[in-house]
Computed example of a mutant assay.
Amino acid sequence: MKHRLLFLSCLSVILVALAACSKDEGSDTPLYQYDSIEYDANRKILITYFSWGGNTQHLAEEIANMTDGTLFRIETVNPYPTDYNECTEVAREELDNGVRPELSSTVDNLDDYDVVFVGCPVWWHTAPMAVWSFLESSGYDFSDKIIVPFCTYASTYREETLAKIVELTPDSRHLQGFGTTGRNTGGMESWLRTIHIIR
Rank of each mutant, 00 (worst) to 15 (best):
K2F: 13
H3E: 09
H3F: 15
L5A: 13
F7A: 07
V13Q: 03
I14L: 10
L15H: 07
L15M: 14
V16P: 02
L18V: 12
A19C: 07
K23Y: 15
S27W: 02
P30K: 08
L31K: 10
L31T: 06
L31F: 03
Q33G: 12
Y34V: 10
S36T: 12
A41M: 10
K44V: 05
I45M: 14
L46K: 08
L46R: 09
L46N: 08
Y49V: 01
S51G: 02
W52N: 04
G53P: 02
T56M: 06
L59I: 12
A60P: 09
I63T: 05
T67K: 15
T67G: 13
D68Q: 09
G69A: 11
T70C: 01
F72A: 11
R73A: 15
I74D: 12
E75D: 07
N78V: 13
P79C: 06
P79W: 00
Y80P: 03
D83M: 07
N85D: 13
N85W: 12
E86A: 11
C87N: 11
A91I: 13
R92G: 08
P101G: 09
S104Y: 05
S104G: 12
D112C: 00
D112K: 15
Y113L: 13
D114T: 14
V115Q: 01
F117C: 03
T126F: 00
T126I: 12
A127I: 08
M129C: 04
A130Q: 11
V131N: 03
S133M: 04
S133Y: 00
S133Q: 10
F134A: 04
E136N: 11
S138E: 07
F142Q: 02
F142Y: 15
P149C: 08
P149M: 05
F150A: 02
T152M: 02
T152N: 15
Y157V: 00
R158F: 02
E159M: 14
L162M: 01
A163Y: 09
L168V: 11
L168G: 06
T169Y: 11
H174A: 03
G177W: 05
G177I: 08
G177M: 07
T180Q: 13
T180C: 10
T180E: 05
G182P: 06
N184D: 15
N184Q: 01
G186T: 11
E189R: 14
W191T: 13
